[in-house]
Write a protein that binds this DNA or RNA. Sequence first.
DNA 1: TTCGATTTGTTCGTATGTATT
DNA 2: TAATACATACGAACAAATCGA
Lengths: 251, 251
Amino acid sequence: MPTASPTPTGPLYRRVQAALTRKLAAGAWRPGEAIPSETVLAREFNVSIGTLRKAVDELAAGNILVRQQGRGTFVATHSEDRTLFHFFHIAQKSGSGARELPVHEFLSFREAKATAAEAAALGIGAGTPVLRMENALKLGGKPVIFDGIVVPSALFKGLTETVYRNRESTIYGLYQARFGINVIRISERLSAENASPAVAKLLEIPVLTPMLVAKRIAYTYNDTPVEYRVSWLDTREHEYLSDLWKGDIAG
Amino acid sequence: MPTASPTPTGPLYRRVQAALTRKLAAGAWRPGEAIPSETVLAREFNVSIGTLRKAVDELAAGNILVRQQGRGTFVATHSEDRTLFHFFHIAQKSGSGARELPVHEFLSFREAKATAAEAAALGIGAGTPVLRMENALKLGGKPVIFDGIVVPSALFKGLTETVYRNRESTIYGLYQARFGINVIRISERLSAENASPAVAKLLEIPVLTPMLVAKRIAYTYNDTPVEYRVSWLDTREHEYLSDLWKGDIAG
DNA sequence: TTCGATTTGTTCGTATGTATT
DNA sequence: TAATACATACGAACAAATCGA
């Protein structure tokens, strides 16, 4: 194993980047807020403006910070269309152009203890208290996705069914605004399984219909897992988009 | 619609980037070869070395060019492990660590005419001559994936069953080395469907087993589609990884 | 092994352009 | 209009990796 120290190693711009990430993780600047200007930060870290910009570059590329010429650099928010599709990969099959955001329908909210699989995904001990939330997601007015969400209770003190149901934004927007937890990336593992009787009933589809199952782990800064989510997708009229793409390389 | 001209617009580094991409597309430098050094290219394009570096940055980030300190900058090749998993997203379910590359087993090679769906995916007219190739892919010694590949005949003059079966590298490596066609990105659409009798027999699985179907379009420079591929994955012991991730943001 | 030439990587600084308020 | 903030472009110097003499 190499050094485990957080800062003192590597190029200067990387150390600055790490320092910025720590500040973000500590909530030094709230989502949507502008961070100090490049000149101010460069002076604060005692580096040239070019080095500071290079430190910010990757954070901006990873959608953690958002730069706007003439305005400033902002902490990314989960309430802008730009960000939303970063975490929602499902679209209508024929749909070539504009994608649609799902309408959530509340199903259940319960406290429970983490199963072995959930604990492994969340990096906590089995039996640790968790919150379980279930939703049906509608696209084009019809229920297409069944979502089971699990989060560690310890990270979401004060999250009740009322808070959850009365949120004004997306779920990740709620995590961010209310609990200071910023989901910055997800990883998903996909497989195909037959609809269970429960899911089939909820989505109004025949049993034994093949469905796409996505098991997602959502991470905040420093690769800390904060949510485990299992989604059942009815792929008769919708599909999952992978590698849609990022920054198109110029021609 | 904005201007359709290829170069004269936008920042200088983008025009240089576009010029480099055109040279790559035209085959000015072969895969695996080094492109001219930064100082030489900067002089050639009459820009500063910083601007030249910025032009190369995105191409390197998109895995089109590979930089190596002290050696040079190279055209990316489809024969290095680093690149391979960029286009192969399937792994064993339990497998946490090291991933495995598939062993291809030849099934068929045929000339045909593009169906409407294939034509749309490849951006060609329906009925255009295409080549159809079928393979079974083995992981851990067992057949897990059925692959149906379609490419336009016009792009692959001289591709015969013999050439295809006797290739020494991956399929994309063959495209690159033999036909000068460089796959630089893919996009996939995933759904769940029951195994067809033919696929079930080939993969030795029961009919009506739910399978994950991936419909892939592979692109070369300038977003030109060059291959359409439909993969049937047996997800009983394997799964599809999405958003595994790219450049991890430092902590 | 050592040394020097070459190539990319890092850091600094400065000037100017462009968007926002 | 003026001030502010990010974007682009140039140039210089040195560090680190590579390779061959």
